[in-house]
Design a protein around this nucleic acid. Structure first.
Length: 374
DNA sequence: AACACGTGGCG
DNA sequence: TCGCCAAGTGT
């Protein structure tokens, strides 16, 4: 299957790299060979667009310039810098791995993919990426861009996500990666996948390796690769209550093993009766007591926030609740009463952050109104 | 092997 | 509005 490319591998590599040298975007992580910076960028880029990553990458490196800085940080500080980027286990893993490297590897990065893969959050792709970009280790890579590119070059008919397809893709990658300058070569593959060999309507007229491409030769660009099957989203309703007491609001840290683990949120729970667009306030108060042990009065509807997450579409009914009695039960995990001016100090879920902004705006409005009588 | 894990941009 | 897509990994 790879014969088309392998037969004239040297020409293929030359054409690809020549194209890359003319068309490479100047991405921040391409300006360095520091394995630490490359590692951070690769973790951030997992299932995440370049556009989204750039500002996070800059902030992260400004705050934690070295592996030692990261290892010395609190996990909460790392999560705060990750806030909004998604897949938060990446942030927790990056922190764990940093401590591991500092404590057990003298703060030095392994150069081999096999050793890199032993670190939490680093799988076969990321290990190959770091090893090749930072050390020119001749490691193969397969990720979204190269998967599409290889599949088309090979004319891959199998599902590229199946075990069979994956095996063929990795074998292909192994065969084409050069012994020298693997870093630039791998970057070139990804850049071509990202810029030319795009998912829909690839511009084959601009492709430097078109003559090696089975899909282009046969007009199969639209059929290869086979699309990823996606489950239809499920609608769910949730309720969030900003429980208010003495100018502060109750925030709870989400426990390990759940979505948004380690991030903070207002009191929040699923609402079984999805038909109820505006749940009875009394019922909400009952649920808050069940959740927290606190007796509250639901005083005002705040907003309805729509948010998609994995395969769920969430409608979040947000309310303001005034504390009446009871103390929060800490058995379920960490919680704090926080003034709205301090919300930004904690890593919040995206919906939590939105709600936090609304509450802060609501307060500043009411204080400015009270300062301006009439 | 299949599913969980997040979010935002784009057509 | 909606589905697709994004430098995947862990379980």
């Amino acid at each position: 299957m790879t014969a088309g490319v392998v037969a004239s591998l040297t020409d293929f590599r030359r054409a690809l790299v020549a194209w890359y040298r003319r068309h490479a975007r100047p991405l921040p992580w391409r300006a360095t060979r520091d394995p630490y910076q490359i590692w951070i960028s690769e973790i951030m880029l997992q299932q995440t667009t370049v556009t989204a990553v750039v500002p996070y990458f800059q902030r992260f490196l400004a705050r934690f310039p070295t592996l030692q800085d990261l290892a010395a940080a609190q996990e909460q500080s790392v999560l705060r810098l990750w806030e909004g980027l998604g897949y938060y286990s990446r942030a927790r893993n990056i922190h764990k791995a940093a401590r591991l490297l500092v404590n057990e590897h003298r703060g030095e990065f392994p150069r081999e993919p096999g050793e890199l893969m032993a670190l939490p959050g680093i799988g076969r792709y990321t290990a190959g990426a770091i090893a090749s970009f930072a050390f020119d280790w001749p490691a193969p890579i397969v990720e979204a861009n190269t998967l599409r590119l290889y599949a088309r070059l090979m004319g891959l008919r199998d599902d590229p996500r199946s075990a069979r397809g994956q095996k063929q893709l990795w074998e292909f990658a192994e065969q084409i990666v050069p012994a020298r300058h693997a870093g630039e070569f791998n970057q070139a593959l990804m850049e071509l996948g990202a810029r030319v060999c795009v998912p829909s309507a690839p511009d084959c007229s601009k492709c430097p390796v078109r003559r090696w491409c089975v899909a282009a030769t046969n007009g199969w660009q639209a059929e290869i690769p086979l699309p990823k099957p996606r489950a239809a989203p499920t609608e769910i309703t949730e309720v969030a209550v900003a429980v208010h007491r003495d100018g502060k609001y109750l925030l709870r840290k989400r426990p390990e093993g759940v979505r948004w683990a380690g991030l903070w949120d207002f009191v929040r729970f699923g609402w079984r009766d999805a038909e109820t667009r505006s749940p009875a306030l009394h019922d909400v108060a009952v649920e808050v007591r069940r959740e927290t042990g606190l007796t509250v009065e639901i005083t005002a509807p705040l907003a309805e926030i729509r948010h998609s997450v994995t395969r769920f579409r969430i409608t979040l009914q947000c309310h303001l609740g005034e504390w009446l009695a009871g103390e929060h039960d800490h058995a379920q995990g960490e919680s704090r009463w926080v003034a709205s001016t301090q919300f930004a100090r904690l890593p919040l879920s995206v919906t939590g952050r939105k709600l936090a902004r609304m509450i802060a705006a609501r307060e500043s409005k009411s204080t400015s109104a009270s300062k301006r009588p009439g």
